[in-house]
Amino acid sequence: MILSPAERSYLYDSLSVQPPVRPDARSAHQFRPIEASCSFLPNSNGSSRVRLSDGGEAIVSVKTQVVLTKNESSLISIDVDINKERDDSNFIKNLISSLESILLKKFPIEKLKLTERYSFKVYIDCFILSHNSYPLGLLSLCIYLALKSTRLPLLTSTVNDREIEEQPTFNDDWEASKKLFEPSEHQDDPPLLFVVGIIGNNVFIDPSNEEEEVSENGLIVGFANGEIVPPVQSTNLSNRDSKGISPKHILKAYSMVRNCGKEVVKALNTVVSSDDDVFTSIY
């Protein structure tokens, strides 16, 4: 995005005051409005779609496959595809690496275990149709929703097959499938990643495109089950050189994320629990 010096200085100054004045009149801990829906892809185990008010849109599909546990190095596989970007670009690689670093660590793997020998492998495929600001936040929300809406086929054969091998068989009724993340247990929600912008002494969450342009630095903060979790990494949100981060920024970011994180999770859970009809969403 190209900003004229006047625009640039205006944005910078408004965002540096205490409290920061954001161009769209949001408060520092306020997110942009999103539109989200779940379970609309009939062939996937779980799916979600999030649209951001600035036109960004992402779709995530979760599919599962039965694999021999010992043959797989990792039971989760994430792939990101951005419209009009090369699949091997650094941009995408960075996104995937941020996502993997939190999802692989903070995912309750024992939920995927089927028998002593077999487990489910989860393939998370993300497709970003368009984005104006840094899409990591959007993507993370979308992945959260998709995982929460994922259902796993119910195993009907034996669980203990260490000594005697049995071929896993499943209940053919899709309604009998169980959700990967049960709605009641709050202990075990998928993790989220939040993008925080830093200007002067201020930190603000979910920066828009213009805000990113003038920011001095940015932070990616992980959040799971009410706690800040790694990764916490700095990132340059603008095209210009970044300035340093002080510990104060990090602490402010932490407390902001902690507060709004809970609200975000609650809001997303409401989306998931409103039972969406796949059929209606197609026809």
Partner: peptide, 19 residues
């Protein structure tokens, strides 16, 4: 009129959602 059938097919140890 069209309606939809969803079920799970277990084959060779795998489980696929079929719509």
């Amino acid at each position: 009129t069209v309606t939809q059938k969803v079920f799970v097919r277990s084959r060779n140890g795998g489980a696929t959602k079929v719509v």
